[in-house]
C-alpha cells in the first residue's frame, strides 16, 4: 500500500524560523534547550498531528534533554522537521527513532563547532571590525557610529543567514546536511576571518604604539606592559587582570610618569 506523504507548508516553516529566535527563552539546568525546542517545533507538530493523543506524544518527546549552539540549532531543527514529516506519514518505529537520534547525536558536535566558530571567531571578529572603525574615526563622533553599526550588520547577516539556510538545508537534506558543515566553504571563511582579525589587531596595536606621545618612557613601557600581560593572560581571569592593570597604570602614572 502506498503511503500518502504529508508535506509541511512553507508558511509553517516560516513560523518555525521566527520561533527559532526564542530557542533559549526557557533555558534550564535540567533539560537545557528542551522547552525552547518544543516552542520552536510547535507549528510543525500542530500541523502534522491534529489528533490530541498523537500531538501530546509529539510534544512530550521534544521535552527530552536538548542542547546545542543556538544558531546552528536551525540545521537540527530543519532535519527534525523532515524526520517528523516522514514519521507522520509512515508511523514507523524506525522513523520515530530517527527523530530522537538526530537530536541526541548531533546536539553535542554542533554545539562544539558553533562555540568555536561563532563565539570564538565571528563574535570577536565583529568586535574587531567595530573597534577598527571606532579608533579610525576617533576624532569624529558621528563617524564613530560606523563601528557599532558595521559590527552589528556583519554579525547579524551571518547569524540570520545561518538560522534561515540552516533550517532550509536541514529540512531538504536531513542528516546529510552535516556533511558539508565541518569541512565546507563556511569553515574556510571562519579561518579567513581569524587571519584578517589578527592583521587588524596588529595594525591597531602599532597605531596605539605610534600614538603613545613623544615620551621615551611611555614608548618603552608600551611593549613591556604588553609582554607582562601576555605572560599572565592565560593564568588570570580577565576581571583580575583588569583590576591589576588599573592599579598598575594608576601607580605608574602617579610615581613614574
Amino acid at each position: 500500500m502506498e503511503v500518502e506523504k504529508i508535506l509541511i507548508p512553507s508558511g509553517v516553516l516560516r513560523k518555525v524560523f521566527f520561533r527559532s529566535f526564542f530557542l533559549q527563552s526557557l533555558w534550564n539546568f535540567k533539560g537545557m534547550q528542551n522547552a525552547g525546542f518544543l516552542y520552536v517545533m510547535r507549528p510543525v507538530l500542530d500541523f502534522l498531528y491534529p489528533e490530541a493523543h498523537e500531538r501530546k506524544n509529539a510534544y512530550l518527546r521534544h521535552l527530552d534533554f536538548f542542547n546545542t549552539h543556538p544558531y546552528y540549532a536551525s540545521y537540527i531543527i530543519g532535519a527534525v522537521c523532515a524526520a517528523e514529516e516522514r514519521y507522520a506519514s509512515t508511523d514507523s518505529e524506525d522513523d520515530l527513532r530517527r527523530i530522537v537520534e538526530t537530536k541526541k547525536i548531533l546536539g553535542g558536535p554542533i554545539a562544539a563547532f558553533g562555540e568555536s566558530q561563532i563565539w570564538g571567531t565571528l563574535r570577536p571578529f565583529a568586535a574587531v571590525i567595530g573597534v577598527f572603525f571606532i579608533i579610525l574615526f576617533s576624532k569624529n563622533i558621528t563617524l564613530m557610529w560606523s563601528g557599532p553599526i558595521a559590527a552589528f550588520l556583519f554579525y547579524s547577516s551571518v547569524h540570520i543567514y545561518l538560522r534561515w539556510y540552516g533550517l532550509e538545508d536541514g529540512y531538504k537534506l536531513e542528516d546529510r546536511v552535516f556533511d558539508g558543515i565541518f569541512t565546507g566553504p563556511l569553515r574556510k571563511s571562519f579561518v579567513y576571518m581569524r587571519i584578517t582579525a589578527i592583521v587588524l589587531v596588529v595594525f591597531l596595536l602599532v597605531r596605539g604604539f605610534l600614538g603613545a606621545g613623544t615620551s621615551v618612557m611611555l614608548k618603552t613601557v608600551y611593549p613591556v606592559v604588553f609582554i607582562i600581560i601576555a605572560l599572565f593572560i592565560r593564568k588570570l581571569p580577565a576581571t583580575v587582570l583588569f583590576y591589576a592593570v588599573l592599579i598598575a597604570g594608576g601607580l605608574f602614572a602617579r610615581y613614574c610618569y
Binding site: 608600551y222 583588569f242 597604570g249 594608576g250
Partner: peptide, 18 residues
C-alpha cells in the same frame, strides 16, 4: 597613561582570543 594600559590589555585579550 592608565587608559593606555587598559588599551594594551584590550588588544592582548584580542590577540589571545584569535
Amino acid at each position: 597613561v592608565t587608559m593606555r594600559f587598559i588599551y594594551i590589555l584590550c588588544f592582548a585579550q584580542l590577540f589571545e582570543m584569535f
